[in-house]
Nucleic acid binder design. Structure first.
Lengths: 192, 192
DNA sequence: TGTACATCAGTGAACGCGCGTTCACTGATGTAC
DNA sequence: TGTACATCAGTGAACGCGCGTTCACTGATGTAC
C-alpha cells in the first residue's frame, strides 16, 4: 500500500505526542513501543519507519514534552499582569492541576530520576532539550545578567520539579495540597 | 539442606541491602530480583522464602534506604557545631559525593518519579517510611511548632531532592557543580 | 493521455531475551523420644 | 546418650509474558515515459 503524501509526517507526530504523554504517565521503561502503536491503531513493526530505536523515541518524546511544557509556561506568563510573569509560572507549575496531569506536564517531574541512567548520547539530547526550554523562559526570570537568569532558572525549576515529584508520591491529598501551597508562597517570595 | 540457625535473617538483610543499593543505582524496574540474588551468589527461586513479591521487596528496600539516609543525615548533624546542624545536613545532601553515589543516597532523588506509579498499598508503605525519616530529622529543623518543622522539612527536602535529581541528569560536570553550589547557598539562607 | 514501473508506510509473524513467579526436590541441622 | 524424624532455606528447571527488534511481504499512489 502506498499511503497519502503527508501521512508519514502525521503518523510521526502522532507517535511522538502519544509517547510523550504515555511515558510521562506510565514511565518510559515498562510502557513501550507496543502500547503506543496499539493506541494509534498501528502495529509495532511499523514503528521503525519513524524512529531508529526505543532510545531515539525517548529522546524525541522528551524533547516534545519540553516544547509542550514551554508552551504552557509561556502562556501562563503572557496572560499575567506585567511584572508578575514569573509568579504566574510558579503558580501554574505548582498547581493541583499539574500534579494531577503528569501526561501533559513537566517531564523532569515525571521521568527525571531515569535521566541519569540513560546512555550518554541520549542524556545529551535530553540536556539540549532542557537548555532550549530554559532559554525560552529566560525572559520571564529576573536577574541582571543572562548568566544570573540562567542560574536562577536552573535552581528554581530543579527545586520545583522536586516539590511536584514529592507531591505526586504522597498518597494523602491533604499533604499534597499543603506542600504545594507552602512551596508557592516560598518560591514566590524567594524568586520574584 | 538445613542451614545454620541465624542464616535466614542474615540472607534477608543481605537481599535488602543489595536491592536498596541496586534499585537506587539502576532503577527499580529494569534491574530485578535475578541480578540481586545473583550478586549474593544465590538462585532467584530462593527469593520467595524472604519476600512476598517484587513489590514487597521494593517497599522494604525503600524503607531500608530511608533508614540508611537517616543515619547519614543524623551523623552529619551530630558532627556539626551547635546551631549549624541543618546547614551541615544541607551541605551533605547537596554534595558532589551524594551526586556521585546514588546507591547509598537519597532514595527520593534516585527513584522518586516512580513512586507515584506504584500500587496504592506500596505507595502507602513508602509514605510511612518517609514519615519516619522526617520525624527522625525533625529535631534539627528550626521552627516554633512541630507542625511548622514538618512543613519546612517537607518543603526543603522535596526541593533538594529535585536539585539532586537535576544535577544527576546533567551530563556536564561543571553545570552540575554550579547548580549544587547555588543551591547550598540558597537553601542555607532560606532555612537556617 | 495512457501505461508500466518504482516507491515505501504499514503489516504480521517471528526472533531471542529477561522478567516475576511457581514448584518438586535436597539434605544438614534441630528436635523428640 | 543415641536414634528417628521433621524442618525449611536454598536449588534449578520450568512457566507465561511482554519487551525491542527484524524482515519478507503488500499494494495504492506517485513518477517516468
Amino acid at each position: 500500500v502506498r499511503y497519502p503524501a503527508q501521512q508519514k509526517a502525521e503518523t510521526h507526530d502522532k507517535i511522538l505526542a502519544t509517547a510523550a504523554r504515555s511515558f510521562r504517565e506510565h514511565g518510559a521503561e515498562s510502557n513501550g513501543i507496543g502500547s503506543v502503536m496499539k493506541e494509534l491503531g498501528l502495529t509495532k513493526g511499523g514503528f521503525y519507519r519513524h524512529f531508529e530505536s526505543k532510545d531515539d523515541l525517548l529522546a524525541e518524546a522528551v524533547n516534545f514534552a519540553f516544547k509542550q511544557m514551554g508552551d504552557h509556561m509561556t502562556e501562563a506568563a503572557r496572560s499575567a499582569p506585567p511584572g508578575r510573569e514569573l509568579q504566574a509560572m510558579i503558580d501554574r507549575y505548582l498547581s493541583l492541576e499539574h500534579v494531577n496531569s503528569p501526561g501533559a506536564g513537566c517531564v523532569v517531574a515525571a521521568l527525571g530520576t531515569e535521566f541519569s541512567r540513560q546512555p550518554l548520547a541520549i542524556r545529551k539530547r535530553i540536556n539540549r532539550s532542557l537548555s532550549q526550554y530554559r532559554e525560552r523562559l529566560l525572559a520571564f526570570v529576573p536577574g541582571r545578567t543572562l548568566e544570573e537568569k540562567r542560574q536562577r532558572f536552573a535552581l528554581l525549576f530543579a527545586s520545583m520539579s522536586g516539590v511536584l515529584m514529592n507531591a505526586r508520591a504522597n498518597a494523602d491529598p491533604k499533604a499534597r495540597e499543603e506542600l504545594l501551597i507552602a512551596a508557592r508562597v516560598f518560591f514566590t517570595e524567594a524568586f520574584t
